[in-house]
Design a protein around this nucleic acid. Structure first.
Lengths: 201, 201
DNA sequence: ATCCAACGAGACCGATCGGTATCGCTTGAG
DNA sequence: CTCAAGCGATACCGATCGGTCTCGTTGGAT
């Protein structure tokens, strides 16, 4: 998901405006190295611009972090929305679509995990705006997933949603470690099993 | 697990040697604030000693981080061992015991997650000794869990172990966010379900 | 009693951090 | 054509980082 910008230098033609390049660079570096490990200078360099230009668009580094996470969250929500319009009357397909989206993304984030989980680790302060954003996003996703489970006719929507959430998060975490092989398919099989098991018999 | 040292000032009597106090302080601060966010000065202060004393026992900050993670990993392994001696011929009880241990620990790590997962987020470099330590520990736990699943007579030990791992990690991650309520019991119920489902009928 | 190793205290170092100030240059809307 | 706004470059600021050095004290084994 995301990572729209090419990795190369500032292309000669059709260069994006500085603000977008900065956000692309931030996405790349924050994801790969972590928030605290990346300095604003490095972000400016990778964006092919300067620190001053960065501070013309973002008040502080924290504000940039927040905006980056807002975009990531919006990307996830967009996938959810898109699945909803694609399968308006099939909540089960929406759930499996979300799982498929996560599963397919696993190889790409190999050894680097989920941006949200990693950012939470670097933002211990619950009052931090970026952290509040993450928690709000996760809460919204959980509510939405629970709703889908209910509409899918599962016997215990709360339990099923929690189960799926655990498995989804756990798969992303586990991808950081060991053999990434078959994690995606394993994940799909498990989610499928959860749905079947909670279905009214 | 761990957190053996009292939280208070350096007690007047029976004060632990500096090295232990430093490790206790590191455990406390690294867990609560994160690795990168904590300076060696802060660790020394909390241990009631000085930076110099710290560097007499640990070559670098990284070495201290590594030693801390080694202790945490050893604590987990010790619980595993203890369960093995308690239920030598009941692999199922061992698995449930481990899940119970995690579940009971969830309220304690509320909003701060698992030290391993958080540390992975702050150690993007796969060659970092501390990271290698974590990966080795996780690999060992996974192997052990798979073995238990096999001995428990589950039809697909690999699948069952992966499922349990995902759920365990996911529960710890999710504890950082929302309503921590009932997460422990929910976790136990899910693991129990995984065991039942994979049992030969 | 002695002596040495570990300790507490604190100054100090170079590097890097987030963030600001200054100054030309480009550029596109009026 | 004009001119202000946005831009790139660079120097700079105070604070903090990990890590080193010195020195005076202390306490347990011999």
């Amino acid at each position: 998901m995301a990572n729209t910008g090419r990795a190369g230098r500032q292309s000669r033609v059709a260069t994006l405006p500085p603000r977008e390049r900065i956000l692309d660079a931030a996405e790349e570096l924050f994801t790969r190295e972590g928030i605290k490990a990346v300095g604003v200078q490095a972000i400016a360099d990778r964006a092919g611009t300067t620190k001053m230009a960065l501070y013309r668009h973002f008040a502080t580094k924290d504000a940039l972090v927040e905006e980056w996470l807002r975009i990531v969250a919006a990307d996830y929500t967009a996938v959810f929305d898109q699945l909803e319009t694609a399968h308006p009357d099939d909540p089960r397909a929406q759930i499996l679509g979300m799982a498929r989206f996560i599963a397919d993304g696993l190889p790409g984030i190999s050894h680097r995990g989920c941006p949200f989980i990693n950012s939470l680790a670097e933002l211990p302060d619950r009052a931090h705006p970026a952290r509040r954003l993450i928690e709000a996003h996760k809460a919204g996703q959980a509510r939405r997933l629970t709703g889908l489970c209910a509409r899918a006719g599962l016997t215990d929507p709360d339990e099923a949603a929690a189960e799926i959430t655990f498995v989804l998060e756990g798969a992303q975490v586990s991808t950081q470690n060991a053999s990434v092989e078959r994690v995606g398919e394993r994940l799909m099989r498990i989610v499928q099993g959860v749905l079947d098991r909670h279905s009214a018999r």
